[in-house]
Amino acid sequence: MQRTNYLARKVLFRAITLVVVIIFNFFLFRILPGDPVKSIARSPRLTREVREQLMVDFGLDKPVWINIDALKKGNILGGLDTQFTAYFQELMKGNLGVSYRSRRDVAEVLQERVGRTVLLVAGGEIIALIFGVTLGLIAAWRRDTRLDTSILLSALFFWAFPTFFLGIILLILAGGHLPIGGMVTPGLKPVDGWKYWIDVGEHLILPTLTMAIIYTSSYVMIMRSSVLEVLSEDYILTAKAKGMNTFQILRDHALKNAMLPIVTIVALNLGYIVGGAIQVETVFSWPGIGRLMYDSVTQRDYPMMQGIFLILAISVITANLMADLLYSILDPRVRAE
């Protein structure tokens, strides 16, 4: 009962956030100079038919927020006939506009790219979690020993790295031994089966490693302070008084409790991680959403940028919702809130 309340509140808040993001996205591309939506329609690169279709789709002849003309005529519903409602309707249909450059449907391009970025981010994240949690646990347990100091200092060192620069360094170091750019050796196709996938895997190593190192460093620090806190709790003394050994205590009492804050932080971190993905994909020419963002920025491809930003924001919000759900399963106290 209480848990349902908690979840309902969370779902509601995330849903509101999502709506706000959608409005924000619309607003952002209209308030800043350049008025990109109008320029889509004016773009000489588009054929006349596409341009006219866009004018209709985006209702560019209509007012932005409120249709005062219609209201004056007493047509209340007509007052809502605006660019904003048109944007919203198109969005619901999955129409994110057409790219300036490639003239392709933005949603279609995103669909094609999103899986590749997920592959990269998920790989990096999983490795970072495994190493971050383990090293953080060890550092906290061996607090103030030489081992702790070296783990902490290396974490701080890599934490000070801009993601793209670490990528460049790895690229220089591994050049010649591992593929340093692209997703697959030109010529190989998915029909080549396992050969294709092994090649993709080789291309994944460096970008994934870059992400993994950067995020390991922040998880180490978070986990270390989390474990330090848990280890000074009374229930650790209880466990010791039961006769449990250090390993059993760390495994059965410290790990789960210390991992709880990590769940939320992983989701919140996703916002930074997609930022990292943009840099890593740029350095390694990995053809995912991040590289697409870089290309659209350099080409001033506004519809594409708008679509990417929306998809990234939605993913982060969804991830946060999932973290809320997971948290409520893991932490019995949340249900009592």
Partner: peptide, 24 residues
Amino acid sequence: MRVVDFLMVIPSLPLMLVIISLWG
């Protein structure tokens, strides 16, 4: 605090990229 919570989930680097490339 709701505003803060909202801003915290917006991916910051992509947003910076969008704003700077629109704004100059």
